[in-house]
Design a protein around this nucleic acid. Structure first.
Lengths: 323, 323
DNA sequence: TTGTAAGCGTTATCAC
DNA sequence: GTGATAACGCTTACAA
């Protein structure tokens, strides 16, 4: 029996002939090793949990996380690791599924994407289970994390509008309870200040990420007595809601209203007109976080603990000079 | 050691005092049983794989499958089962992750939602692993499945329009490679025929499920020399694309164009005007499929193998009489 | 009521 | 280069 194991796993001093014979028989018998038995003796499962944070409404459908997931999946697959996605968080009082999976040693590590209660993260790390945060970080806590430069991204999107001559620039922010919301807001305000523009709270609106809500919100902004001539939205979905609202009011884009989004989802390039946006390195985020987790699992120290990925302004058709 | 096991699992003749003492110590030691060891001896893992079918790519899937997932998750949680979601299908030639997980006995059953290559389903079932299909069925194969009455749903949506006096009723179908596409098309045509209306292929358009594509497609239909006065779309997202296109052309809904969708996603009730649609019992679909899988896992026979859930026409504000 | 021994399927260790 | 043996952590039969 050990011979078979050795042969199949390509481990040790086994003659080529035996190896082939074993392989043939295994195939004929449709033999597949029992995962539980392997992980019991090996002490690892070669799998990790991918946890959709509570801000992640859709799962795969969410265009943002789909790209992130592709990055994570690619690295895992290459490393022979399996990614298990856990269901959306359940009844708040009970520990989420990943906590149980971690304490039962079903997985070797945890990757949390987005908003999560820090308590569960701590509890999981306390058992020695590696955890990496993605698109989120717990300020002040030494939890390894990979995030986008949200502040810098919002800054550059807003600055782009200011440089085009806009002086009344609206802000459509996200009502989410993880740093993304605050950081984008900071970036927007800082850009205004640096451009010598006043901050006007009347031009700021903060809503859940949802194209329909964005449409309504944008409608409100555009109905102002002194409406903005440009709007920075913190995600492309929100920006698309803004363009819809503008269309409904007969406003031409970018002639009457300039719009900048953030993400650069696939859809952004093919809308009419194509969306000017701040590109987030989504796949890179996923890849980086996955590698970090793998390093942690292998016992290597990761440095730095917080990786901040730069954004890139992509100027397309929804922004133009202020008349 | 066995005493501890018995005490914790509430199995046998253990004194209440011992039981409590064991529980206290376990908590203090933060003891959690090792999943791999348990499933090795018990022969089951109390977990099942939830597989997102290959049609679940775009954002449409979001709202539809979220509801389905809620149904599945509820039943599983109640039964003490864990649901593991596998990543979207990878490079086509390799077996998808659920096949490997099944052959390694990592899971006790598989729930596939949507389009899937029948080959992998067969291979999995051949190993004795229970499989249930959800929102999909393999015609002619005895794979247990829970589906919506797509034909009947499309029929009732179309008939509703015919009964309102519309004689030129457009069809916006889904280009997907699982029965849903064909079935909805059948239902539409049958309703026309039964209403004594001619089938005009010029009024039919079949596109990927995507609001943006629907907008373009609807634009084409509405630009016809003799345009339809009503459109039946096979999903709410498509229907929403139609209403957007109509708005762009200055058409009033329902005065100038009646629209019916299918799904009844949450969004449908709050659009302006609210969408008339054919409601799919999404949560019930999930619950039913989950129970079926659990029965199969417990060795019970399920009967019938194919469960077809009825739809319900929900008349709201996007349909009106033909002038 | 409790403790002892066996065994689930795999791999690592060690004689042969 | 190959085969026996032990061990991973747990649960279940069975003996005390």
């Amino acid at each position: 029996m050990p011979t078979a194991s050795q042969a199949l796993n390509g481990r040790a001093r086994i003659s080529d002939q035996t190896r082939k014979r074993v392989a043939r028989v295994a195939r004929r018998l449709r033999y597949a090793p029992h995962a539980a038995a392997r992980r019991l003796i090996l002490g690892r499962s070669n799998s990790a949990a991918m946890v959709p944070g509570s801000n992640m409404t859709g799962m795969f459908s969410d265009l943002f996380y789909r790209a992130v997931l592709a990055g994570v999946g690619g690295v895992f697959e290459e490393a022979g690791y399996r990614m298990l996605i856990t269901p959306p968080l359940r009844s708040a009082s009970q520990p989420p599924q990943f906590v149980e999976m971690a304490s039962a040693r079903e997985i070797d590590g945890v990757l949390v994407a987005g908003a999560v209660d820090g308590r569960w993260v701590k509890q999981t790390m306390d058992t020695g289970m590696p955890v990496v945060l993605l698109d989120n970080h717990l300020p002040g806590k030494p939890v390894p994390a990979v995030v986008n430069d949200n502040t810098g991204g919002a800054y550059s999107g807003t600055r782009h509008l200011a440089e085009l001559g806009h002086t009344r620039i609206g802000f459509m922010g996200a009502a989410v309870d993880y740093p993304f919301g605050r950081e984008t807001h900071d970036g927007y305000r800082r850009a205004l200040t640096d451009a010598g523009l006043p901050v006007d709270p009347a031009l700021e609106i903060i809503i859940p990420i949802d194209a329909e809500r964005a449409r309504e919100g944008a409608g409100a902004l555009l109905s102002l007595a002194d409406p903005p001539s440009a709007i920075f939205a913190v995600t492309d979905m929100l920006a698309l809601g803004v363009t819809t609202a503008a269309r409904e009011r007969g406003l031409a884009i970018p002639a009457d209203l300039s719009v900048v989004g953030m993400d650069d989802i696939d859809l952004a390039a093919v809308t009419n007109p194509p969306l000017t946006t701040v590109r987030i390195a989504k796949e890179a985020m996923g890849r980086r976080a996955a590698r970090m987790l793998l390093d942690l699992i292998h016992g290597d120290d990761v440095d730095p603990r917080l990786v901040i990925l730069p954004t890139e302004l992509v100027v397309r058709g929804t922004t133009g000079g202020h008349r």
